[in-house]
Amino acid sequence: MTKSFRLTSTYFIVVLLLMSCATVPIIPRLYKLPLLNVDNKMQKFNMQIDFKKQSFSGMLIVQRRADSEIRIVASTFFGTTLFDFGIKDGQFAVYSCISPLQRHNVIKLFENNFKKLFLPSQNFRKVRLYEEYEERISGRNFGKSIFRIYKPQNDDFEKLTIKHPWIGITINLEKL
């Protein structure tokens, strides 16, 4: 009786798992498009960074320059620049950065996030399409990042979040 009960419940669990998986298509990591397309038109985002109980907000400005470099500048809404990064030919440059953020791990985190956001052919372990958002997961453990883009339509979107679950940092971007 016990053995048959275990077999039956295992059977149901497997069926439920298969059913839930069937509603969320998993796309292999050959998905090559960048999360956000950057061209020569300036794009502005309301950026909010949550770290544990602290929250910080500012503006992120992104534009592809004539020499094809992607320039990424973050500024407080009040006006002071927090950082000025550039990505060109896969290389990441730090033009300026306020001293509290000038930590190797912090810069590396930004580098990885922005490359994943703006460059094509980035490796993601998993890409899932849900009704409300598209999710891309890269890395593991402390290097794990979860990108969610809400309602992607024609290169426009409502909101994008980057979650680093092991570090406890979440970055939210909303188009201005």
């Binding site: 300036m42 400005i61 500048v73 006006g79």
Partner: peptide, 15 residues
């Protein structure tokens, strides 16, 4: 009117 001018960009940001 707040106008942010960054030399690296062609346009200013106005709020």
């Amino acid at each position: 009117t707040q106008i942010k001018h960054l030399d690296v960009f062609d346009d200013d940001i106005t709020l």
